[in-house]
Design a protein around this nucleic acid. Structure first.
Length: 431
RNA sequence: GUGAGCGUAGCUCAGUUGGCAGAGCAUCAGAUUGUGGCUCUGAGGGUCGCGGGUUCAAGCCCCGUCGCUCACCCCA
């Protein structure tokens, strides 16, 4: 019996890690341009950070958390999302005292114990951004623009759905109106929605069951019940998006699964995915900081799924940059083999990707390997070359060969133009 | 938590009414001296998920079990 990775977790193998590096590079580029700085928090927290932050009533807290007790008896939880952790760190380190707005982004693994399926894993990866410390609608638009830009940069077709879920003034009132309406159609709702009509009526509108959609066809809209403040905020966010040239559709039924949202709520959905089509989403969470024991602080943020992004990119035939190998160095006998390794190291120290054979294979086999690896040039050295101190340099694309003095090999490769399809950003370290 | 489908080579999958375990791709080697791709030839690689049962005989039928996948719920 051999070991296997845990259900719902995946190994990222060498032939696909380049795609992740590229994606991460694009994300970091956009985040940096927007002047958001990376934040890294621990992958686990005291359980209460999430149960209080996200809300006891949510599915995430109710049934999806990876919670365990450590040897000291504390209840700890693997983070199911990042916002609560970021806010905890914001409070803990008094970032508010530095003045101004705190703008951070993150990329990392999250954990939810659910039954895995297409586009859903137990360990999955999200990137996202949070803008903490300002109530202006411009912040909401700024956050949305980041996500929209990243998707645009990757050529992804998706729809931005926008809504307002109101504030502590108008939401309770709307809730009553909605509840009254739902009571009227009670018998036509699914059992699940009948239950939710009591606990979290707005989620009934979010149901995908045809039965529920039919029954709530002309349910009262939150947008007709917004307070003046929320109304003005919503309109201002829309105006910003219009100014930015970011298209969106208003969806008054959009309700996100986390309890902390106020005012703006949004979601990016893909038309190219299966049943898990949410690429990312977010919203304003003006009450969360207080919820976690800090001073009342307005904030907005979004989170998006990396795996789902990759799925869409692969479906759309997105061309990822190739990890071009520049030089493969073939050695034929013991002495030339040792020489070829030394040359490979010299080239690498100059930033030129180079490889040589470690398995003592034949010239033909090494050539095959070089070709398979996509080497642009192959250096061939055997007894004769060692004797004459001149190496054969073959350009794979054309098949042309020339003889180059050992002494000028390095400068020969340094003079070559950088290949057009290599992408330096693919090699940017992520740590 | 609920429902459905699938487990055969590294990968994708054939395998008939139960009768010697297969293909394509990949890997490795070769096609006159030390040269890749295309082509050709050959080789290696299997506890048919696991355990039990029926049978002269099980990849195939029956029971159990584990795993994977997809869907519901919800989300990324």
């Amino acid at each position: 019996m051999t070991f296997k990775s845990i259900k719902g977790t995946k190994d990222l193998l060498p032939d696909e890690s380049g795609r992740w590096l590229h994606l991460e590079a694009v994300i970091r580029e956009v985040m940096t341009a927007y002047r958001y700085a990376e934040i890294r928090t621990p992958t686990f927290e005291e359980t209460a950070v999430f149960s209080r932050g996200i809300g006891e009533e949510t599915d995430i807290v109710g049934k999806e958390m990876y919670t365990f007790t450590d040897k000291g008896g504390s209840s700890l939880t693997l983070r199911p999302e990042m916002t609560a952790s970021v806010v905890r760190a914001y409070i803990q380190h008094s970032l508010a005292e530095q003045g101004g707005v705190t703008k951070v982004y993150y990329i990392g693994p999250m954990y939810r114990q659910e039954r895995p399926q297409a586009g859903r894993l137990r360990q999955f990866h999200q990137f996202g951004a949070e803008c903490i410390g300002a109530a202006a609608p411009a912040c909401d638009a700024d956050i949305i623009a980041i996500a929209a830009d990243i998707y645009a940069r990757l050529g992804i077709r998706c729809t931005l759905k926008l809504n307002s879920v109101g504030d502590p003034v108008c939401r309770p009132k709307y809730r009553e109106v909605l509840q009254a309406y739902l009571a009227g159609v009670h018998d036509r709702l699914t059992l699940e929605s009948q239950r939710r009509a009591e606990t979290n009526p707005m989620r009934v509108l979010d149901s995908k069951a045809p039965q529920d959609i039919d029954a709530t066809m002309d349910a009262p809209s939150i947008l007709d019940h917004l307070s003046d403040e929320s109304r003005a905020h919503f309109d201002a966010v829309r105006a910003c998006l219009d100014d930015f040239g970011i298209p969106y559709v208003i969806d008054p039924r959009l309700v996100r699964g986390l309890d902390y949202y106020t005012k703006t709520a949004f979601e990016f959905v893909s038309t190219d995915l299966g049943s898990q089509d949410a690429l990312g989403g977010g919203g304003r969470y003006d009450g969360l900081t207080e919820q976690l024991g800090g001073k009342a602080t307005p904030a907005v943020g979004f989170a998006a799924g990396m795996e789902r992004l990759l799925m869409v990119l692969e479906k759309s035939g997105y061309t990822f940059p190739s990890d071009a190998l520049s030089v493969y160095i073939v050695g034929l006998d013991e002495r030339s083999r040792r020489w070829s390794h030394v040359q490979a190291v010299r080239l690498r120290r100059e930033g030129i990707p180079a490889e040589c054979d470690f398995t003592g294979r034949s010239l033909k086999a090494q050539m095959r390997e070089a070709n398979k690896r996509g080497a642009r040039h192959v250096v061939i050295v055997g007894e004769e070359e060692m004797a004459s101190q001149r190496a054969i340099v073959k350009t794979m694309e054309t098949g042309e060969q020339q003889s180059i003095e050992f002494a000028s090999l390095l400068s020969y490769f340094l003079r070559l133009p950088v290949s057009p399809n290599s992408d330096a950003s693919a090699y940017v370290s992520t740590h």
